[in-house]
């Protein structure tokens, strides 16, 4: 888990963790949304004017209403309909969730998007129009806008003011990929490598899971094979495994070691002896 993980406690009581969306993807989603809404509006009106079906005054009315609609209401409606995702958020694969573990309520969606007016649109239009006032009023205004823009960057969960009021989080869409279980033997045969308790006492959970990552990919290139053999030799040395291991058997040696180490650590954990890393013995002695 990366350090961006945030635990949510659903009503079932089992915490599940979501990855907080990065500042970059949130900015990207916002940028895309603005591009889509304003670009879409522009295209629509170019089309309408070109087709010439609607009278000019109707066109102006429509334009004013749509300009209003694509600001705050667009975000409210799209997040209501797609459960916390606007078009831009769908593209960059992030979404809004409720921080309290319940469902996302209409109130939360409305609240977080109303604040968008001061947090996004106001600074953006002021910057683009370039009509920043001079003197200390302009300075105060500019400082305040920078402050508002900085809020999501300085807090750990990247919360906007709107997120704080609504109690929402913006997270990455979870992706579920089930990789094969490495502890399942491919062929049914007697284990050629046998490790006893003294061998398995050395490492902890962290080293086991690092080994798991290494074993996910069978080595193809000479460098990868060299790395595997180095890992195997290191492990052999550290656990004082005295028997001879042939270089061609390194992969099998590591797989078998992984399986037995995992079985051992899991059963230790069931007995209340959780070993986080290879320093577990030192911690106990202190």
């Amino acid at each position: 888990m990366s350090n961006r993980a945030e635990n949510i406690r659903p009503p079932e009581g089992v915490p599940i963790s979501f990855e907080i969306a990065s500042g970059g993807s949130r900015f990207g989603a916002q940028f895309l949304d603005i591009l889509i809404t304003f670009g879409g509006l522009l295209l629509l009106f170019i089309g309408l004017i070109w087709a010439g079906l609607i009278a000019a005054s109707m066109l102006a009315t429509l334009f004013l209403l749509l300009i209003f609609f694509i600001r705050v209401p667009y975000y409210i409606f799209s997040e209501l309909v797609w459960n916390g995702r606007t078009l831009g958020k769908r593209i960059v694969k992030i979404r809004v969730i409720s921080a309290d573990g319940g469902r996302l309520t209409p109130h939360q969606i409305v609240a977080r998007n109303l604040m968008k007016e001061v947090e996004v649109f106001m600074p953006a239009t002021t910057l683009m129009s370039g009509t920043l006032e001079s003197g200390w009023v302009g300075l105060a205004l500019g400082g305040w806008m920078v402050g508002v823009l900085l809020v999501p960057l300085i807090n750990k969960k990247h919360l906007r003011l709107g997120d704080m009021i609504a109690g929402t989080l913006v997270v990455d869409n979870p992706k579920a990929i089930l990789l094969p279980d490495l502890a399942v033997r491919k062929s049914v045969q007697k284990p050629t490598f046998v490790f006893d308790a003294s061998h398995l006492d050395v490492y902890g959970r962290y080293e086991l899971q690092t080994l798991e990552e290494i074993l996910r990919e069978s080595p193809k290139s000479p460098q990868a094979i060299a790395r595997i053999s180095e890992v195997a030799r290191t492990i052999q040395r550290k656990i004082d495994y005295v028997e001879q291991v042939l270089p061609t058997d390194y992969w099998d040696f590591l797989s078998e070691f992984y399986r037995q180490q995992r079985e051992y650590l899991e059963s230790r954990q069931l007995f209340g002896d959780a070993r986080e890393s290879k320093f577990h013995n030192k911690n106990k002695q202190e």
Binding site: P11, V14, N83, P106, A176, A183, E212, E266
Partner: peptide, 25 residues
């Protein structure tokens, strides 16, 4: 009970996805 990191990550993501569908408005 499990130290299989792949399994834990998978279940975590699966539950998160299911949670988002079950607790949709």
């Amino acid at each position: 009970i499990s130290m299989d990191k792949a399994l834990l990550a998978y279940l975590e993501a699966l539950c998160a996805r299911a949670y988002l569908v079950v607790y949709a408005p």
